[in-house]
Design a binder for these strands. Structure first.
Lengths: 192, 192
DNA sequence: TCGTTGGTATACTGCCCTGTATCCCGGCAC
DNA sequence: GTGCCGGGATACAGGGCAGTATACCAACGA
């Protein structure tokens, strides 16, 4: 018997991680549970002992997907700009195919799918992260600034997938800087 | 016999339009060709006389998907800002589920899929549209400005799907305005 | 008038999917 | 030692999928 995955991970999480990678790389509907089980070196029967259905596995996979690590040190402004740097590092590390949340959400047309609530929670957290830093930095309208940063971040995530190109990411980082400069009333001479 | 669809449309295009709506709304892999045929009020045999395979139909559906109509009148600056307004109008009109290009691309993990080339062409056109206007408006670095506008536009398309909320769209429009003001060296007093 | 073209209707092939059933086995708690 | 839990192996049920085959029929043009 084996109750642990490789490197002593609990089996349940090992399965979720394998599923996350496959679902992300090849698509949720293309990858069957047979393939998840086989790549995780377990049997389908075992998979179904840990997850009641494929839908539940999808939700777990989303939770187990690699995430961008947002900076926690430095001034709020530095942290916000650092988030865009972290994005660039993240995209360089993986063979990126697009924002996992968007990819997953795109395949789960039904808004009541259990994985959708996971996605919404994660996105809400990201926006709160921006809002808190925007407020701490002393923005006039932290809600607006957070919304703007969030949109730019989403755009960078989306654009980064289409071409394997860093230009959109750099453009996003510059836009974020401009937004900050403007909202914090500094650096009125913007370019050059 | 019937060689035309409803309202005298050529049948081929009628099929593509029906497919576009179904694929977009419910997902490419969830919707089978049987269902497309049935909703288009034709038989599967007829569908396969017009399109050699489902993949070909997907590409055609993408071309037939409704598009945002970008403005062509006014100064370049007005046109660019108008594009964001057009986006808002577009999203209000449909029960929006996310950018069609992203949705389709998400389900077509294989980059060599015929529909992917369609997507890339459409996105390249959009960026050129921004670049031409940015140049005509006299931006210092039209390539950069176009890239930034494109990222913000993508972000608006992505965010607009997640909540049924206009705030991200307004935030995007304001960001676009800021980008223009900055790149065109006008309105150095940015907010208030 | 008659063949071709492009529809309709229906059935079928072969494959893959999710989820379950059955049986076996090995380790661990008691 | 002896249940029993959790995993291995395999097979299966039931359905959906893309794509094809067969047969028929209506319009249109040469």
């Amino acid at each position: 018997m084996r109750t642990r995955g490789p490197r002593g991970q609990p089996l349940r999480e090992h399965i979720a991680r394998v599923a996350a990678e496959l679902f992300y790389r090849d698509g949720i509907h293309v990858v069957g549970v047979d393939r998840v089980a086989s790549e995780a070196s377990i049997t389908k029967r075992t998979l179904y002992r840990h997850y009641r259905s494929k839908d539940e596995l999808i939700a777990a996979a989303l939770r187990a997907a690699p995430r961008i690590v947002f900076p926690v040190e430095g001034t709020p402004r530095e942290q916000i700009l650092g988030a865009f740097g972290a994005l660039e590092a993240f995209l360089a590390g993986t063979q990126y195919r697009g924002c996992p949340y968007i990819i997953f959400a795109a395949e789960l047309a039904d808004r009541r799918h259990p994985a959708r609530t996971v996605i919404e929670a994660l996105l809400a957290r990201r926006r709160e992260w921006f809002r808190d830093r925007a407020a701490a930095a002393g923005a006039n309208d932290p809600e607006l600034l957070a919304e703007q940063l969030d949109v730019v971040f989403d755009g960078a995530l989306a654009s980064g997938s289409k071409r394997g190109d860093v230009r959109p990411l750099q453009a996003a980082a510059l836009t974020a800087r401009l937004l900050l400069d403007s909202a914090l009333d500094r650096g009125r001479v913007l370019s050059k």
